[in-house]
Write a protein that binds this DNA or RNA. Structure first.
Length: 348
DNA sequence: AAGTCGGGGCA
DNA sequence: TGCCCAGACTT
């Protein structure tokens, strides 16, 4: 039996029961694939169920506004996926009359859809013979064939795609694509793969040469930048607070947060009182700061560590443009802010 | 080609 | 802690 037959047989016996495998609706498949980018099935599944329920058709998603989409996406990360999802839904609804493009060539043109996602949708929804190459596929192929070309090098990206294209079962491309990814996720795992019971063991170069732990090869590691966030949590006489939208390019674009003063290092209360005066937000005014968290809350992103302090500011008067707790709950916020909101006692 | 974009799971 | 996850986009 060849590689593809073994993979497909393994899949038939071990596949998980996942909702996006029961449909050929390209809209639902597209939703699932965007949600699952760089996201484990376990983490993405509840989001997929929410999105299908709240937005059953592409028109429902297109008719929503971005803020509601981001709110539903809250906690999943990589928020550009949600913004592009909404943008593309509007494009399909308004420009294509709701007709999802049905070839790899056209699907890959959609914003937020790259080579992997286009192949996934084209094969799953339209049975096009186009091979998916995700993190699972890189791992399975690099190990089985003993290929040490870095998977994130230009040569590696091109080479593994070509190899997957050679291997795909042309009579059942969707099943092959599902099978090789599922095999990578469950059997040929990153750590402690089940080589002892693996049906590919005999011909697996990495297993036969004891290189399982050395493959796949990946270039460079992300260097982490430390940042120091000081959030101003105002509470006026009506228990209302201030929020601002992150409109600039970096992290959390179009999500909401409390007014933020970023500093070069972690500041004591004395240092912060001095430092904050020069901030535009406070406009030279001074306030009575009450530090919510003694130790910095360190929120870790893949490439930034956010050392965070929440400063509580109780006010006698009423703030303009302030929001109540019930209003606050409607804003999409980063997980860091959401965590604070759920723990802090807003009096309403 | 390298950098950026989240949050959670795992050894 | 460091690496990975049904990657894509920007610089």
């Amino acid at each position: 039996m060849n590689f593809s037959k073994i993979i497909i047989n393994w899949y038939s016996a071990h596949k998980r029961d996942l909702p996006w495998r029961k449909t050929q609706n390209p809209y639902h498949i597209w939703l699932s694939e965007i949600i699952l980018q760089q996201t484990q099935v376990k983490q993405g599944l509840p989001y997929y169920l929410k999105f299908v329920e709240v937005f059953p058709t592409v028109f429902d998603l297109a008719d929503s506004d971005e803020q509601k989409v981001l709110k539903l996406w809250q906690g999943l990360g990589y928020y550009s996926r949600a913004r592009n999802l909404h943008f593309t839904a509007k494009y399909i609804a308004e420009e294509l009359n709701g007709n999802f493009p049905n070839t790899y060539k056209d699907i890959v043109k959609l914003k937020g859809v790259g080579d992997y996602t286009a192949s996934a949708i084209a094969s799953f929804a339209f049975s096009e013979v186009t091979a998916v190459v995700d993190g699972n596929v890189y791992r399975v192929l690099s190990r089985y064939f003993g290929i040490d070309t870095p998977i994130n090098s230009t040569q590696g990206i091109k080479g593994f795609k070509a190899l997957a294209t050679e291997l795909i079962d042309k009579k059942q491309p969707a099943k092959f694509n599902q099978a090789i990814m599922e095999f990578g996720a469950q059997q040929c795992k990153p750590k402690n793969p089940y080589c002892i019971i693996c049906p590919l063991q005999e011909k697996c170069v990495a297993f036969q040469t004891n290189k399982i732990e050395n493959l796949p090869v990946k270039l460079k590691k992300t260097k982490v930048r430390n940042r120091f966030f000081n959030y101003l949590v105002f509470l006026d006489a009506n228990h209302k607070t201030l929020v601002e939208k992150r409109t600039k390019k970096g992290i959390w674009q179009n999500l909401y947060q409390f007014p933020l003063i970023e500093s070069e290092k972690s500041l004591s209360i004395d240092e912060f009182e001095t430092f904050s005066k020069s901030s535009e937000i406070l406009n030279g005014k001074t306030f009575d700061f009450n530090l919510y968290n003694e130790a910095d809350i360190i929120h870790k992103l893949s490439h930034q560590h956010l050392h965070t302090k929440f400063w509580i500011i109780q006010l006698e008067g009423e703030l303009e443009n302030a929001v109540s707790y019930s209003e606050l709950k409607e804003f999409p916020v980063p997980a860091l802010i959401g965590e604070f909101i759920s723990k802090f006692k807003f009096k309403n």
